[in-house]
Simulated scan of single mutants.
Amino acid sequence: MTVSYATSADGTRIAYETHGEGAPVLFVGGALSPRQSALAYVPHLADDWTVVCLDRRGKGDTRESTPWSVEREIEDLAAVIEQLGGAVNVYGHSSGAILSLKAAAAGVPMTTLTTYEPPFLTTREPEGWKDYADRVRAMASGDEPGDAVESFIRHTGAPWDDGIRQSPFWPAMVALAPTLFYDLTIVADAQVPADTLGRITAPVLSLYGGGSPAWAENSARAVAAAVPGAAVDAAPGQTHNADPAVVSPILKDFLRH
C-alpha cells in the first residue's frame, strides 16, 4: 500500500490510497471514518474500478490544518479529484455524503455521485444542534476526548456498550474526536438544502438501507427530489453501516450506466 498526497488550495496535503484498476471511485467517509473505512469495498470493486480511500482533513495521514471550514474540505476534494484526472465517481457516506453533495453543487467535477444515508432530518429540525456541536468540540479538546466520542455515538442513536472503550479500535476513535465538530458542522441544521442541490449536474444515486429507520429513506428521497434526474434505491436489509457485499452490486450497476 502506498499513500499519495494531493495539495489543497491552502497547502494542506490530503492523503489517499488507491487499489485496483479502471476509472476511480473516490470514497468520502463520514464521522470517525479514516481512509481504512473504505477498504472493505476493495474486494468487490477493484477488478473493474480504482478504489480511492481518502483521509479527510484532520483524519489519518491528513494532518490538522487551521482554520477549518466546509469550504476547505470542498477544496480538498477538488484537489484530490484533479490529481486523479479531473473527474471521478464519488461515493459519500453519512456526513461525507453531505460534503460530497455540497462539493458537487459548488462545481467540483464528478462523473457520478452516489450518496448513502446523508443525515438530513426531513420531518423536524433538531433542537440546539449548533450548541451540541460546540459541546462536542469542548469535550474533544478537554481532558477526556473519549467523552466526545461516546456522546456523539449516543447522539446518533447507535447502540452503545461501555465495552467499546476497552475495544482495540477505541484509541483510533478517540484520536478522531477533534474532527467530530467538523462533521457536525457539515450536517449543519440537518435540513435538505434543496436550492443548493438543484445546482448539481452530475448523475446522482441516492441510497439508503432497507433496514434503517424511516429518516434514512426520507432523506434519500428528499435528496433525489432536489437533484435533477437523481435516482433513489434501497440496499436490502442494510442499516447505516451497510455491508459492502450488498451495496457494491447496486453501485456497480449505477456506474456501468
Rank of each mutant, 00 (worst) to 15 (best):
V108Y: 05
D134L: 11
H257Y: 11
G85Q: 01
L180C: 10
S141D: 13
A105T: 07
V149M: 03
W160Y: 13
R13T: 01
W68H: 06
V70L: 15
Q238D: 10
R72Y: 02
V247C: 10
Q166W: 04
A104L: 01
G128H: 10
D76T: 07
D195I: 02
K102H: 13
E127Y: 12
L77G: 00
P203W: 08
L54I: 01
I14K: 00
E144R: 15
V227C: 04
G198P: 10
N89A: 05
P159F: 14
G146W: 14
I186Y: 09
T185F: 09
Y182G: 05
G96S: 07
A9K: 04
E21H: 14
V25D: 05
A216M: 07
L184E: 00
H19E: 10
V51W: 04
V108M: 00
A158P: 00
D131G: 13
P24K: 01
L113M: 11
W170C: 09
T179V: 12
P43L: 05
F254M: 08
P168C: 06
A15K: 03
P43W: 01
T62C: 08
N218C: 05
G229R: 12
E125D: 05
G85R: 07
A190Y: 08
H44F: 15
K252S: 08
D10A: 07
G22R: 06
F254T: 04
I250L: 15
L99R: 01
D131M: 12
N218S: 12
G96I: 03
T239L: 06
G229C: 14
G146A: 13
A214V: 12
D48W: 02
W68V: 04
A9D: 03
A220E: 04
E21D: 08
A225E: 13
A245I: 14
D253L: 11
M139T: 01
R221Y: 05
S212M: 09
L207T: 09
A245T: 13
P118T: 02
R165F: 14
G107P: 02
A242W: 11
S212D: 11
S141R: 15
P171S: 11
R154Y: 14
V80R: 03
A234Y: 03
V246C: 08
G22H: 10
S8F: 04
T66Q: 06
S100T: 04
L184D: 06
P24G: 00
Y5N: 01
A188Y: 09
G60F: 07
G58L: 03
P171A: 02
M173P: 09
Q191A: 15
E82N: 06
W160H: 11
P24D: 00
S37K: 02
A245D: 10
W170Q: 09
